[in-house]
Structures are given as structure tokens and as C-alpha cells.
Design a protein around this nucleic acid. Structure first.
Lengths: 206, 206
DNA sequence: GTTTGTGAAACGATTCACAGCT
DNA sequence: AGCTGTGAATCGTTTCACAAAC
């Protein structure tokens, strides 16, 4: 199958949450137009995005909310559970660990690591903060799907290297630092500074 | 001037942090190639991005780290301070308020709002959590540049409406909800669920 | 010799517009 | 009649490749 653009995948995720909202409102059928409004795009874009994966609608009618949501979960790979390991037991990790959306969507936090002796051993939401020096060995023995970097910027590359060594196939990086990894490793960045700076650019003449 | 693509602005922000890293290493001149490596792109892309704003390099030599950083700060509008108001005094707000990068880059948190009587009045990093019911009046009297939504998803639209009413020109939304605002208001989303779901898509066949 | 700045070419994503189902 | 699915057209972004500057 043709490689799917990242922008398309992101919209599929938005369509899925729109469908879940429709579902909770008891709406059973939607048009591409309705999905577009909720997902911040156009009806043609919705239809094109879906068409990469098959044809899920009924002409003249629209899409079944339930059936399309199920198909999107399939497409996005959300039928299975994902195991996460956090590195960095700071405030940001605390906020993320507490976020109910993770568990709900099948993302399970399996371990939290830190280097700070004061943090190691602390209980975190049923988990014990582990010593980061054992990260590679422990994650090799007990693999996870996604490593979440929530350390300061200057440790981010080191942590990424260790996650790669441990065989972690995907990384979600919250540290404001670019990290380099082998091509086979999937990396997503959440960079708050960058988001604020794009807003700054937008506001520069206000 | 031609409208600049969002992707370009985001890269400029990455180039700026790369330049700051070079600066702290005492490097005074960089090539587009060096910037590209740090910013995760190509040298041609770097030169093209910069060319929209002028010509800042010396042929055969490269760019002055200091001079280019200054120009990028100008371009991104980072010479001025920005005033932020947070809405939602939860764990995520706690993590963000504590994040030193905000102050360093000139983003000053001026107020934190919540609806929870238990939180109103609490001291947060030198600020007092304010009653969200006074948000519109107070932000009209004391305007901010950016409203940061850190509430649960189901309050996000309501908060956005109030920020718009208060005349806030830009919103950074951490709630996992699409929000609709007038076109004149700039909105950026940081949606953790969406990031995880794109990783899920990437991992789906592992 | 090296590296920038930039038109032109290539590529990729979005929008259009309509035939084909229901 | 209404809405999907999709090739074709359009639009925008990235890459190429090289002349110009140092």
C-alpha cells in the first residue's frame, strides 16, 4: 500500500474522536461534511483520507458512526495495547501519568525511570520509580513499545540512545531538544517552546 | 510579504535552538549543512527558509551564529515579552508553570484560573489561583497575549469562548478537544492522544 | 575551494468536479 | 435527490543544481 502522509494519519485520529463524540450524542450516521466540520477540514479531504484505506460509506447516506470508528481503530492500530516506559520522574511525567486518556486508549505505563536517588523508589500511581542506570537491561528483559522522554533537554539524547539500545521501537520526546536515532526508530516530538514560538510569530505585529 | 508556511516557521524555531546550542559551545560560524543536521532537515531547506526573510550568510563561509540568532528572534517576534494566562490549575498546568523555558524565552505567566473552590486562592509559584468566573472581566482589564487551556476536554470550548470574549488573540490548547474560534484568533493544539495515535499507527504491525 | 541564494524541476497534498451508487 | 469515491487539476513545498560571492 502507498505510504500514508503523516497529516492524513493525524486527521484520522481527529475523525476518530469526532466519531466518539457523535456516538456519545447518540448519532448513528454522519456525512463527510459533518466529520469535516468536527475535524477542522473539508468533506473532500475526509473522503480522500478514508479512500486510502477502503470505502466505508454509503452513497446518498454517509458513514455509520460505529462501523467507521471501528475501522479507524483498526487502521490506527488501536486494537492492541501499547506498553510505555517513562524516563524522567518530574512534574511533566506526573501530569502525564495522571492523565486518564492514556489508559483509556490502551496506552499502559509499565515503568518510570529517573537518575535522582531521591526519586528512585518513590511510589507513583502504583508504580515504583526505577533506577535509570538499569534501563537498558530491564527494558531488554521486559520490552515496551514506546519510550517517553520527560527529562531536561541536556539528557534527552543520552536517554534516546539508551532506549534505542534497549530496542524500543518508538519514542515520544517532551524534552525541548532534537534527538537523533536510527531511521527504524519512530520519534515524535512535543516541543512546547516551539509551539509558543509559532504563536509568537503569529502575534509579532500585535 | 508572501505568507510563510507554518512548517517553515517551526523550522526557524528549531534553527534558533540549534544556534543557541552552537553559541553555548563557543562556535561562532555555521554552515546551512550544520544547521540542517541539528534541525533535522537539509541544507537546501535551511537556505530556502532563510531566503524568505533576507540573506544572512556569507558565501563560502556560512552564517554568524550570533547574528543569525538575533535575526531569527526578530523574525519570530521574540524581542518582546508575551503575557500568558492559564486556565485550569491541574497537574499539567503545574508542570508547565514550573518549566523554566517559558520565562527564559519571554513568556510570562500572569494569571492562573480555575473553577474549583478548593484551588482558588492557592499559591502557585508566586501567583494566586483566581476564580474562573471573573476571567473575562479581569482579562479585559488586564489583557494577556496568549491563553493556555489546561482543562479537561469537556470545558475546553467554553473556556475558549470566554478567552475570545476577553479579547485574547491567541490560544494554546492542551485539552484533547477540537475548539472553534473566530478566524482572527490563533489557536495551536497540543494533543497527546493524537501524538500517541500516530505512534500507534507507525507501530501497528510490530 | 567553499558555501550561499535562488530560479526551475520534482514531488506531494489538497481541492475540484462529477460519475456512480443508494 | 443525496452523498460517496476518485481521477484530474491545482496548489504549495521541497529538492535540485548552479551562478554568484567570498
Amino acid at each position: 500500500m502507498r505510504r500514508i502522509a503523516d497529516s492524513t494519519v493525524r486527521r484520522l485520529s481527529l475523525y476518530l474522536s469526532a466519531l466518539e463524540a457523535f456516538e456519545s450524542q447518540g448519532i448513528s450516521t454522519v456525512s463527510s461534511e459533518a466529520l469535516a466540520t468536527r475535524g477542522g477540514t473539508t468533506s473532500a479531504q475526509v473522503r480522500k483520507d478514508l479512500s486510502f484505506f477502503g470505502s466505508f460509506g454509503k452513497r446518498g447516506l454517509g458513514y455509520s458512526v460505529l462501523a467507521l470508528a471501528t475501522r479507524l481503530r483498526d487502521i490506527l492500530g488501536l486494537r492492541r495495547k501499547y506498553r510505555l516506559a517513562f524516563v524522567g520522574a518530574g512534574k511533566m511525567a506526573g501530569a502525564l501519568v495522571n492523565y486518564r486518556g492514556f489508559q483509556q486508549r490502551g496506552f499502559h505505563i509499565e515503568a518510570i525511570y529517573d537518575v535522582d536517588p531521591k526519586k528512585i523508589g518513590q511510589a507513583w500511581n502504583g508504580l515504583t520509580v526505577r533506577n535509570a542506570k538499569n534501563l537498558v537491561a530491564e527494558l531488554r528483559a521486559n520490552p515496551v513499545d514506546i519510550g517517553v522522554i520527560v527529562t531536561p533537554a541536556d539528557s534527552a539524547q543520552d536517554v534516546a540512545d539508551r532506549l534505542v539500545q534497549a530496542g524500543v521501537p518508538a519514542i515520544l520526546n517532551f524534552a525541548p531538544a532534537q534527538i537523533s536515532t536510527p531511521d527504524a526508530v519512530n520519534v515524535k516530538h512535543v516541543n512546547l517552546t516551539l509551539e509558543l514560538e509559532t504563536l509568537s510569530y503569529a502575534l509579532r505585529n500585535r
